[in-house]
Structures are given as C-alpha cells and as structure tokens.
C-alpha cells in the first residue's frame, strides 16, 4: 500500500504541480489548503508525511508544527516545510519546532521528490 503524503498549501497551481509529480512517483497524495483546521486533518488522515507551507490562511505553518509536536501522536511524524521566507531566523525557528526538513521556494521538482523519498524511506 502506497504511503500517504498530505500536502498543505494554499496556492492552487503549486498544489496541482506537486500532487502530479508526487503521485507519479507512487505516493498517495491528499491535499488541504488552509491552516485553520490543518491539525485536525492531520489527525484524521494520519499521513506518513506532511508537506507544509508556512504562510497559510487561518494559521501559520509554524503554529501548525508547534501544535503537532505537542501532540504525542504526531511527535515523530515527518514534516517537510516549504516557505518563501528563506531567512535564517525562519529556518532556525522551524528547526527549534522540530521540522524534519526545511526547503525554500522556489524549489526544483527534483529537490522536492528527493526530500520526500528520503523522508519516507527512513
């Protein structure tokens, strides 16, 4: 059974492109486009990997990650964070909050595919 990737991103065309390439690699991709109820969706879906944007409507990716790590059910769930904010302080914050991997936009498709492969094969 294919592993599940939950893609939380609010930009529709990025969702389509990433869903396409990850599905083609054999992952089962589900998507969600707002931060407000993202933690509930993660709990319900129990994905093998969360691909998380930082700037989301309703709740930021940092807040979602913080709440995720406070929940014993999600403390070890891999999270790949994608952001247009490439400042070192954002990377530091993501690492402090327990991100598995941090990637800045604009990224290449192969970078995302490699990161997903790495996190799901671990």
């Amino acid at each position: 059974m294919a592993k599940t990737v939950l893609l939380i991103e609010d930009e529709v065309n990025i969702i389509e492109a990433l869903s396409f390439i990850l599905s083609r690699d054999g992952w089962d991709v589900v998507t969600h486009s707002n931060g407000h109820d993202a933690n509930e969706v993660i709990t319900r879906r129990e994905p093998d990997l969360v691909v998380l944007d930082v700037m989301l409507p309703g709740k930021s990716g940092f807040d979602i990650l913080r709440d995720l790590r406070r929940d014993p059910r999600h403390q070890n769930r891999p999270v790949l964070m994608l952001t247009a904010r490439g400042q070192s302080k954002d990377r530091d914050m993501a690492e402090q909050l327990g991100v598995s991997k941090f990637m800045t936009k604009p990224f290449s498709n192969s970078e995302v595919r490699n990161a997903v492969n790495e996190l799901l094969s671990g």
Binding site: E11, N13, I14, E16, A17, L18, F20, I21, M55, A84, R85, K105, P106, F107, S108, N109, V112
Partner: peptide, 18 residues
Amino acid sequence: SLHEVITTVTAIRATSSI
C-alpha cells in the same frame, strides 16, 4: 509583495519542469 512573487515563480517553475 515579495512573497507573492516567489510563490508565483515557484508555481511556474514546478509546472514548466513537468
């Protein structure tokens, strides 16, 4: 404004690569 530009560039890059 910069965030919007980078996000759009990301979408174009990902799609055109495909």
